[in-house]
Amino acid sequence: MRLSYVATGALMTVRELLRNRVVLIMLFVIPSVFYTLVALTTPDRPIAFKLASVSEDTFVSVSQKSESLVFIGLAAVGFLTSFVAMTLIRRDVDVNRRLVVCGYRPSELVVSKLAVLVGVILVVALFVSTALLVFFRPDHFALTAVGLILVGWVYGAYGLLVGALFRRELEAVLFIALLANIDAGWLQNPIYYADAQNTEIIRALPAYFPSQVSMVAAFSDHPVTIPVLASIGYGLSLLVLALIVHRWRMPAFRG
């Protein structure tokens, strides 16, 4: 892999992204709206829930509003990063194929997009983490932020996979909206999980481990090493699949 090619690809991707002002604004507006709605509608009364990744009988009792804020922050980062990832890999796909015919390697193009995606994940996750401080201070702020970065990592990789897999945009959008909505936006809420049946299904979904990192770090002193490593592994698995599908869809350079 030629690093200068990756750098040029990343530079061009950043330029294209920065020129899409509406998307840039939405990256900050959507989490702000989510937080505001939760803050305005959720009661402050204490609520007990299970820290599923610690043990089946480890419960914490915290403000429902604080719990909902962490949950909605995770959902916002998951939604946004998967959509950005899908757009990055799908946009100008035919022009990218032309670039490959002209001499770019598919791996250089995809790594340049991945580098930009990592930047977007960090910016969005750090914004969402910092905005959380407006409402309450998690027990372990840095680790809570790591959970938000990891949900971006896992869902970003999922977005890349969906974007590489589907030729038409509507299918890709539906697949992202469907999973992000039911997983990050519903099933991973610890309040729901506490009474859920077949919890092994919830544990297998992409947002489970990152959600556990943020929830455990925000409301307890338990270690989060295992869910952190599991999140990294989950994201890597999706990423490898995305790279394989993307490579399969790209032409070979003829010289």
């Binding site: 200068s4 090619y5 040029t8 061009m12 670039l99 002209c102 770019y104």
Partner: peptide, 9 residues
């Protein structure tokens, strides 16, 4: 031009 110029080396 810059992007394709890079592709051509």
């Amino acid at each position: 031009f810059q992007f394709f110029g890079k592709a051509y080396g």
